[in-house]
Measured scan of single mutants.
Amino acid sequence: MSIQHFRVALIPFFAAFCLPVFAHPETLVKVKDAEDQLGARVGYIELDLNSGKILESFRPEERFPMMSTFKVLLCGAVLSRVDAGQEQLGRRIHYSQNDLVEYSPVTEKHLTDGMTVRELCSAAITMSDNTAANLLLTTIGGPKELTAFLHNMGDHVTRLDRWEPELNEAIPNDERDTTMPAAMATTLRKLLTGELLTLASRQQLIDWMEADKVAGPLLRSALPAGWFIADKSGAGERGSRGIIAALGPDGKPSRIVVIYTTGSQATMDERNRQIAEIGASLIKHW
């Protein structure tokens, strides 16, 4: 067993022997301040990774656009098919120029040779490549099948209805392509620590998230040296922004954090800054 596999296998073990965790309302004060600064709703939840206990939450059962955070769930569904012998990570998928959609920095470079399922998941999570996500959605049967996968996990809230990039439209009061912070946090925890996926697939999923290259201005910008984070960000229309993450000190994750916002007129930089400040408060009061 590799060191990384050992780390993920012992996530519940280490967490069980940690000192009790206590909620700190100071972080919620910052979440509410972010709402004021952005002029928009902000949803927040913080779960203990081992027990699933909610440590703090704000608007945990209000719907927010998922945006690209759905790509972690998508690759979880792909990995479940791999575990069941219905898919192979090494299978190569070929596609054409007509398949390319807006923001496809990886797939646009491989029109000639195609990409493997493993490479597509890596591109979808680490670079948020939209064509990679659409190609992977095709392998599982489309958005409705991802929703069905989530329902089978016990998540009857999260739903995907459309493809990239239309799913980022974020129309107010439109339930399409949305989740709730509580539902997303619980589902992410199941994917990373539950028995739904094999140990190898859980490790692969967290490795992809740990290698995320496009979430630097968010929670990662607030992390002290030595902290662990595996995350996936999302951005959408109407001032929408979000991030889902597993993080913790001492090089291992111990909490799940989900943050979503929508309806702001603020710039992307300002949305990023507010999420980073929430992260800084979380870490300060850990």
Rank of each mutant, 00 (worst) to 15 (best):
M1F: 02
I3W: 07
H5I: 08
H5Q: 12
H5A: 08
R7Y: 09
V8M: 11
L10K: 05
P12E: 06
A15C: 15
A16M: 15
F17L: 09
F22I: 07
F22A: 10
F22W: 14
F22G: 11
H24N: 15
E26R: 07
T27R: 03
K32F: 08
G39C: 11
G39D: 12
G39W: 08
A40W: 06
R41S: 09
I45H: 05
E46I: 07
L49N: 05
L49S: 07
N50R: 12
S51E: 13
E56I: 05
E56R: 09
P60D: 15
E61C: 08
E61Y: 14
E62R: 06
R63D: 03
R63C: 07
R63H: 08
M66K: 00
T69K: 00
L74Q: 02
L74I: 07
C75M: 06
G76M: 05
G76P: 00
G76C: 06
S80P: 01
R81W: 06
A84K: 11
Q86F: 10
E87N: 05
L89D: 05
R91Q: 07
R91H: 09
R92A: 09
R92W: 09
S96Q: 12
S96W: 12
S96M: 10
Q97K: 14
V101P: 02
E102V: 11
V106P: 01
K109S: 14
H110L: 08
L111F: 09
T112C: 10
G114S: 05
M115T: 05
T116R: 06
R118Y: 15
L120W: 00
S122E: 15
A123D: 02
A124K: 00
I125Q: 02
D129S: 01
N130I: 01
A132M: 00
N134D: 05
G142F: 01
L150A: 09
M153L: 14
G154E: 09
D155M: 01
H156W: 11
H156Y: 14
H156G: 15
V157Q: 14
R162G: 08
W163Q: 09
E164A: 00
E164M: 00
P165K: 07
E166K: 12
R176K: 14
R176A: 08
R176T: 07
T178P: 00
T178D: 02
M180T: 15
M184S: 03
T186C: 15
T187L: 08
R189G: 12
R189D: 08
R189Y: 15
K190V: 12
L191N: 03
L191P: 00
L196T: 15
A200F: 09
R202M: 07
Q203F: 08
M209Y: 00
E210P: 00
D212S: 07
S221A: 13
S221D: 09
L223Y: 03
L223K: 07
P224E: 06
P224I: 03
P224M: 04
S233A: 08
G234A: 09
G234L: 01
G234R: 00
R238E: 08
G239V: 01
R241I: 03
R241F: 02
G248W: 02
V257G: 01
V258G: 05
V258F: 02
I259L: 10
S264V: 05
Q265M: 12
Q265T: 14
Q265F: 13
M268P: 07
E270Q: 12
E270P: 03
R271P: 05
Q274L: 15
A276L: 08
G279C: 09
A280R: 13
S281I: 14
H285G: 09
